[in-house]
Structure formats: structure tokens, C-alpha cells
Design a protein around this nucleic acid. Sequence first.
DNA 1: TTTGTTGCAAAACGTTTGCAGCCTC
DNA 2: GAGGCTGCAAACGTTTTGCAACAAA
Lengths: 152, 152
Amino acid sequence: MKDQDSFEYVKDLFTEYLLKHHHRKTPERFAILERIFIYEQHFTVEMLYNQMKDSYRVSLATIYNTIDLLLECNLIVKHLLGGQLAQYEKVSGLNTHHHLICTRCGKVKEFSDKQIRTSIQSKQFVHFQLSHYSLYLYGLCSKCQAELKNQK
Amino acid sequence: MKDQDSFEYVKDLFTEYLLKHHHRKTPERFAILERIFIYEQHFTVEMLYNQMKDSYRVSLATIYNTIDLLLECNLIVKHLLGGQLAQYEKVSGLNTHHHLICTRCGKVKEFSDKQIRTSIQSKQFVHFQLSHYSLYLYGLCSKCQAELKNQK
DNA sequence: TTTGTTGCAAAACGTTTGCAGCCTC
DNA sequence: GAGGCTGCAAACGTTTTGCAACAAA
């Protein structure tokens, strides 16, 4: 059995999805998927575009196209955190985490809390079929707290 | 003591913020604030711009400017839910709610759950000063569930 | 009087779209 | 061979910016 976070496993899932929905298995799509699964942190389309120049050059249109497919099959999630660009993140197995976002410098930090996870996941909805969720906590990071203090 | 959700109360808070930060108390800013606090649901800049034509015409630049100020003093919150436009919402007192978002039709519904609220609000952070948070649950609304079923 | 704010229009920005040619299937 | 996919560039729509005129302090 393959490791659920390995590229091979994810590649299989994506292949299966493409076949099922009669989409084509193009080399561009797999090159993009491969690059995405290297990121440990959030990534943007711009990062992907610039950093793939050396390995397998693809157009922005293709990147957006592929990202849509990956979102549809839940291999990545999209975060709109207020900056210019949308941020994306690979979905890695079981550990859903939450986000701390500094409203001053925009820095994003992840954390995980079992009690919060449980309270959300145990919630039952009558008319809603939950697939995933995002929790964003806004506030000031330690650095910005210190800087604001010094300004006074 | 004024009702915490009344326009007069909110106006006072905004005035105080403007004075404290040496911003000017312009009629445009209060006209925008007044219109915003009529909305019971989310609103967009476009809605604000079109609907203020009759009462007090302001430019888009001024609307964006004022919205930034209202965000800074936590009288409204911003939601980036994936559509073209950013959505905003007035902050009304104590009842923080959460959002159910249909990934197919984009419809947004609110709900509130005490256990979820408590688990989030009781969380302590060492290096982070929490100001507010947003929880978005993605999935399929009942209508889209039915429509997908019929397609098969 | 000073200078922050406004309205207007142009610019900027990420993202989407149209289209001819290519390459899966 | 049919038609989905790609790259390119133009288009799109929201948001930001520059600037002269205005008005709050």
C-alpha cells in the first residue's frame, strides 16, 4: 500500500479522476501536479508559473485549468486570504489545520486543535452535505504587536 | 445606554476612531456607514455604489477608502468567498455566526453553533492576539444535491 | 492655512477567454 | 480523425492610484 501523501498515490487519484470525467491525461497536468506536491506551504499561481520555467514550461491558462481540476477532485484547496493572489495548498491526508492570519503584515501561520476540529466535524446538517471547511483567525502576530508598541 | 446595534452607537464608535487616528469626519463617510448598517445580509461595493445613487452619491474610490477604515476599526468584516466581488458584512454585537457555502451554486447561508464558538474562543495563543475569525464550511446545498442526483 | 479627502479617469492586477494549432484518445 | 487541450495574447472586472479641486480642522 502506497503512502497516502506520496506523489505516486496522488498521481493515481488524479489519473482516476481524469479518466472518470473523460479528461485527457496531458503531460502538462502531471508536471503541474508534481510541482505542487513539492510545496510544504501555501503556493500561488505566480510561484508555480515562475518556478516551473526550468522543468516543464506551461502557460498560465494551463495552470489555471489544471488547478480547477485539482480543486474539483479535492487534491488541493483554495484560500482567499486578502492579498492580491489566491493561495492554494495541497490536501495532505488527515490533518486538517487552521490558519492564523496577521491583519497587519499578512503572515499566515498554521495550527491544529483537536477540540476545534471535533466540534466542527461532529456538527450535523440536515440540508447540507459538507465536504471541507476553512477556519481563519485574524489578529496580530508577535512581531507586529511589538512594532505597534514601539510606535507609540 | 444605547443599543449596541443601533446606528447611533456605531456612528459614535466610528467618530471616536476617526478622531483618534486624525482622520476627517466627512459626510461621505457617515453616509456610507449609514447605508451599510441597513443591510441585514452580506453586501458588495457594487451594491453600495448603485444603491447610494439616490441618497448621497459617492465615488468608488471613496467607498473603498471608507470600507478600509471600517475594517480597521472592526465595524465590518470582509469575506472572500470565491466570486468576483469581495463581500462585506457589518459586525453586529455578540452573535458571531458561521457560513455554509455551496461549492456548486455559490449560495451562502449562515448558521451559529455554540459549541463551535466556544471551542474557538476559548483557545489561547501565546504569540498571537486574536481579533476575529471566520469559519467557512463548503459543500452542497439541498437544491444542488437534488439536481446532481437527477443528472445521473 | 494646512493638508487630508474627494471625484474622476486611467492604470494595475489577477484571472478568464478566444482562437489557431497540437496531441490524446 | 475527432475534439479536448495548449500557448499566446487580448479582454475582463474589480480594485488601486494619480491628480487637481475641495473642505475639515
